[in-house]
């Protein structure tokens, strides 16, 4: 217990040091924007993204026959999280007309192609599973 208290106290001191760095090196207007980003990040995840995932899972559990659920879940985890990682390249928000070496791939077309392949893979995997004897768990 004492060790945990010590580790916890170290953590708190480190976090407060970070807060001190931010407060001492940036001005009030800048803290405010960081605060907005903090709030938007948490709200974007806890309210928007979580609700979306719950909705998709609910829909999947109602609409998809059992053999397709496991492949669809695996696909959702991989495709969904990789899509989140790809947001900055999919939007191409940082692209600049004067720099052809930046964001120089057909990101959106690739994403559509991958998405289509994922759908086909899930469909095939479910089909294979549905034809297999249900002895395995």
């Amino acid at each position: 217990m004492r060790t945990r208290l010590l580790i916890g106290a170290c953590g708190a001191v480190i976090a407060l040091y970070g807060a001190f760095l931010e407060l001492s090196r940036q001005d009030a207007g800048q803290w405010l924007e960081v605060g907005i980003w903090f709030g938007a990040g948490v709200a974007g995840h806890d309210a928007a993204l979580s609700a979306l995932v719950i909705g998709v899972c609910l829909l999947g559990s109602r609409l998809l026959p059992e053999p397709w659920r496991a492949p669809a879940t695996i696909a959702l985890v991989v495709w969904g999280t990789v899509t989140v990682v790809a947001v900055p390249v999919l939007t191409r928000a940082g692209a600049r007309a004067d720099n052809a070496t930046l964001l120089d791939r057909p990101y959106l077309a690739t994403w559509w192609a991958i998405s289509a392949i994922v759908v086909v893979l899930v469909a095939v995997a479910g089909l294979v599973r549905s034809r297999r004897p249900r002895a395995r768990e």
Binding site: R4, I7, G8, A15, L16, G18, E22, R25, Q26
Partner: peptide
């Protein structure tokens, strides 16, 4: 800010682990 908040995140993580 990315530098300062890194300390906040890692400190809060250490506290959370404790």
């Amino acid at each position: 800010t990315h530098y300062a908040i890194a300390w906040v995140a890692i400190g809060a993580l250490v506290l959370h682990i404790a």
